[in-house]
Nucleic acid binder design. Structure first.
Length: 287
DNA sequence: AAGAGGCCCTGATAGC
DNA sequence: TGCTATCAGGGCCTCT
């Protein structure tokens, strides 16, 4: 599901709701995710405090008070839901509000705090929760990933030199996390549209100007998406269940056969597949 | 080394 | 009230 902007929105919500809160109880309803949830998972988390919450690329990192880290990845279909506890004087057999938006199936992990609990849901099970022991192992985990688009490391020299001798198409590189991390299939098409570059163009053939545009629009598209609360295709929602608004701003993604939105361009949006991933571009203004 | 392709998994939708 | 095929925002693995 989610690319960097959606993960950032979830991370910001989590910060507001569970930062500095102590974990009271952990219930695993289904251990099968991309990695099987180990049997000691509950024990490691319980009675620890979420000291900090950070994000790198599409990974959320919970910093736990016992010097451990919990890495969360939402895969394609992971969602986190927030439920609030009802007030003490209400007599009921269930101590948390049921959310109308909480799916009935595929709830995997429940983490309870004093007044709220979060529930991780993931139909396709491509996501995972992983406990990391110590900062060195945490850094090692992200070692193989390229810089985020906002990073100083993602600069002209890096991009231009990276593309020397690279015969693959530019679109494949934008979603290749070893080159740049955080961009996924939707934003790759959007970035290339704004950069006026055809997704099938070989990376080695990009001009210096085009490299600059890739850098500029990678930043711009992701920042704007974060500001708009992410994109809500299919099932992405913020923890409160609110839709993101960025999908209203798509220029090409999901607009097959429709007119190009660029002023003065009479091209049409085409859909092709690049290594089995749908790719959208304007057949006139992207070269 | 770099690149192409397959695979993990379930659900929604389209077409018969 | 069926099928069946295809596709979905990610990432890892293998083969050449």
């Amino acid at each position: 599901m989610p690319e960097l902007p959606e993960i950032e929105v979830v991370k910001q919500s989590l910060e507001k709701k569970i930062k500095l809160k102590k974990i009271k109880k952990v219930i695993i309803k289904n251990r099968n995710l991309r990695f099987k949830i180990p049997s000691n998972f509950e024990k490691i988390l319980v009675n620890t405090t979420i000291e900090n919450i950070t994000r790198f690329s599409k990974y959320i990192i919970l910093h736990l008070s016992n010097k451990k880290y919990c890495i969360i990845h939402l895969g394609m279909s992971g969602t986190i839901h927030l439920l609030k506890k009802i007030s003490k004087d209400q007599i009921t057999n269930t101590s948390f509000y049921k959310s109308a938006l909480l799916p009935k199936k595929h709830n995997h992990i429940e983490i309870q705090f004093n007044k709220v609990k979060i529930i991780y849901n993931d139909p396709r099970r491509f996501g995972f929760f992983k406990i990391i022991f110590g900062k060195n192992k945490l850094l090692k985990m992200f070692n193989h990933l390229g810089p985020e688009p906002f990073s100083k490391k993602f600069n002209f020299n890096y991009v231009f030199n990276y593309f020397k001798n690279k015969k693959k198409n530019i679109k494949s590189f934008l979603i290749d996390q070893k080159f740049v991390s955080g961009i996924g299939n939707i934003y790759a098409s959007e970035i290339l549209f704004l950069s006026k570059i055809k997704p099938t163009k070989k990376a080695i053939k990009l001009s210096k100007k085009e490299c600059h545009r890739i850098i500029y629009f990678s930043n711009k598209v992701l920042i704007k998406a974060i500001k708009k609360g992410g994109s809500s295709i299919r099932n992405f929602k913020s923890l409160s269940g609110k839709d993101g608004l960025f999908q209203k701003e798509f220029n090409v993604y999901g607009r097959e056969d429709l007119n190009c939105l660029k002023k003065g361009c009479n091209g049409k949006v085409k859909k092709i597949f690049i290594t089995n991933r749908s790719t959208f571009f304007c057949n006139k203004c992207q070269k």
